[in-house]
Design a protein around this nucleic acid. Structure first.
Lengths: 101, 101
DNA sequence: CCTTTATTATCGGATTGTGATATTACAAAA
DNA sequence: TTTTGTAATATCACAATCCGATAATAAAGG
């Protein structure tokens, strides 16, 4: 079910949060959990790496409480993708959900 | 880009249209094109087959103008998935797009 | 040291995505 | 009744992705 329909949603959530402030793995995992998306590390980290590899995010490791955390910031390309995603979401909403039409 | 974020959107569009009336390959391909989603037969048909295989759609072949067309209807499971998708879309909208918040 | 805790990394196999190409089946034309 | 045209669907092959399970890392506290 996640895979079938909602992994794109998850990626857009990630871009959105990264556009507000730097994020890191465990934090975004919990944030996604609050939205009902439960993904394990085997899905989460490859996804972050791919978003980075494809140029949507960039890494910025920091030491916090003695532990290294890989913070991610959104890139310009990521902002563009987020902007396009917003358009597509609006379209989807007006098509599929009547109340916003 | 399609693959990275929007294939779930495409599948939800398909479920939505199949919930309104029976659809078939070329028609939904053109309909998706109107929304800016261009997918070739190598993506479209396996996607339809998978949706059928997973129980979201069911086939109903008809002969139209002498040609066989595989019409697809949505199933109960498909309606459930569409309903869940609507919830997730609402959530995504209020989170990612301020004007609907 | 050893243990705990937080965080990130990797592995393996099944599934999926996709461009290119082939197939089907009927209609119309020859 | 063979050939040609055409709308629609099917398949192939290979790369990319998904994801549970498991491992690795590194610092803090004992």
């Amino acid at each position: 079910m996640l895979k079938d329909f909602f992994l794109g949603f998850v990626k857009i959530h990630i871009l959105y949060h990264a556009s507000k402030e730097p994020i890191y793995g465990v934090w975004i995992q919990e944030e996604l959990g609050r939205h009902g998306y439960r993904l394990g590390p085997g899905t989460l980290y490859p996804t972050l790496h791919r978003l980075e590899n494809d140029g949507y995010l960039e890494q910025q490791p920091r030491v916090v409480g003695g532990k290294v955390r890989n913070y991610y910031n959104i890139t310009d390309k990521g902002r563009d993708a987020l902007s396009e995603a917003r358009d597509k979401i609006r379209e989807l909403v007006t098509e599929v959900i009547e109340e916003y039409g």
